[in-house]
């Protein structure tokens, strides 16, 4: 008679992370393609300022990370929501899994993917700047150091925040579509009645006390959102058809 398999929680989570990274790898290619497309079509979404004096016209183009980070945030949000759809969730049950191992593996994958998305965002900007100098023969002046760990950390946590928000939205809609819609409606009514600007509130909350404080607040918020999502989905049944 066969004996029972004894497999640890961490071993299962690590295996799931390994295979989920492969399974969702196309999403990274999609992000790269989006970033390249935006770079080609909109020159990286640069800001242009023009001015003139007598016969001299000066146009100053600012090439920043902002547009790439925003794109990565939208990408992370969508990927995190998609992870909660039936198609992806049911794939988990083809191998050894519980709701906790699958959710934890998803969270780790989102951490890793957010990190990769940050690298891609930086790299796209560097490639764009290099191309402008080489192909366009235009001199580029740097306003800040091209790479700073603090900027990298900021970008990473902004993308991770988007991913954790997406994961929570996906979890709420997974639990109940009605509840998801109700929460969105309530949020809209709340902002309309109180005449508050949620983005202003969020920016104020996260950024008013410096970069390090932002990173700590972002990390704490992400953990809170991910734990809430894991808890929400821990009792969810599976019905593959």
């Amino acid at each position: 008679m066969m004996s029972l398999n004894e497999i640890s929680f961490s071993q299962i989570v690590l295996n799931q992370v390994k295979w989920k990274m492969k399974a969702y790898s196309q999403s990274i290619i999609i992000l790269i393609l989006i970033q390249i497309t935006v770079s080609i079509l909109f020159s990286g979404g640069n800001i242009t300022m023009g001015g003139g004096f007598n016969e001299v016209n000066i146009n100053i183009h600012y090439y920043t990370l902002d547009s790439y980070i925003i794109l990565s945030c939208i990408w992370a949000l969508v990927i995190a929501i998609l992870m909660q759809t039936n198609g992806y969730r049911h794939d988990d049950y083809a191998v050894i899994t519980t709701r906790y191992t699958a959710s934890l593996a998803n969270v780790i994958v989102l951490f890793v993917y957010s990190f990769i998305a940050t690298i891609i965002s930086f790299m796209t900007l560097y490639i764009l700047i290099a191309l402008i100098q080489v192909v366009g023969n235009i001199a580029v002046m740097k306003e800040y150091t091209l790479f700073e760990f603090v900027h990298f950390g900021l970008a990473f946590f902004i993308i991770l925040l988007a991913a954790s928000i997406g994961y929570l939205i996906g979890s709420i809609f997974k639990l109940s579509k009605g509840l998801g819609i109700l929460m969105v409606v309530l949020a809209v009514i709340f902002t309309a009645i109180l005449n508050v600007q949620p983005e202003a509130l969020l920016v104020n909350f996260f950024f008013n006390t410096g970069y390090l404080s932002f990173m700590l607040k972002a990390l704490f918020t992400c953990i809170l959102l991910f734990v809430s999502s894991i808890f929400i989905l821990s009792r969810k049944e599976v019905n593959r058809r």
Partner: peptide, 18 residues
């Protein structure tokens, strides 16, 4: 939600996806 049973049960059904 039990890892011990999940590790020792294989459930094959038509709706299996990969």
């Amino acid at each position: 939600n039990n890892l011990k049973t999940a590790s020792n049960i294989m459930f094959v059904e038509e709706g299996m996806t990969f």
